[in-house]
């Protein structure tokens, strides 16, 4: 049984800025559900004595001083991979509808 509903898939697609066709929605509904089923399998492991972590290096307090600035990218280099730019700016479709 699929763990995710169609509207769950559409919600995730919206957050990812993806337009899905209805066959795709069905496909991802089952595929993403499988991922969650696998998580269920992992959840059967006993992790009572394992501390949660989001880090694997064991590092703490890695800082940079604020005393000097680094060289920046030249503007034409900075914008070079943009799908659209003018001489100064990255250019995108207007975000304001008005």
């Amino acid at each position: 049984m699929a763990k995710l509903t169609k509207s769950d898939v559409l919600h995730v697609a919206k957050l990812s800025k993806l337009d899905l066709t209805s066959p795709e929605v069905e496909k991802f509904q089952s595929q993403l559900s499988e991922v969650l089923n696998y998580m269920d399998e992992l959840n059967t492991l006993d992790t009572d004595r394992v501390l949660p972590t989001s880090q694997s290096t064991g590092l703490e307090n890695v800082f940079r001083g604020d005393d000097h600035t680094n060289d920046c990218l030249a503007r034409d280099i900075a914008t070079t991979n943009a799908s659209r730019s003018d001489s100064s700016y990255f250019v995108t479709k207007g975000v304001l509808k008005k």
Partner: peptide
């Protein structure tokens, strides 16, 4: 962001 209309097209210009 700077919002602009260029040639009838609504654009947003980004300064990072």
């Amino acid at each position: 962001l700077i919002h602009k209309t260029v040639g009838g097209q609504k654009l947003s210009l980004v300064d990072f």
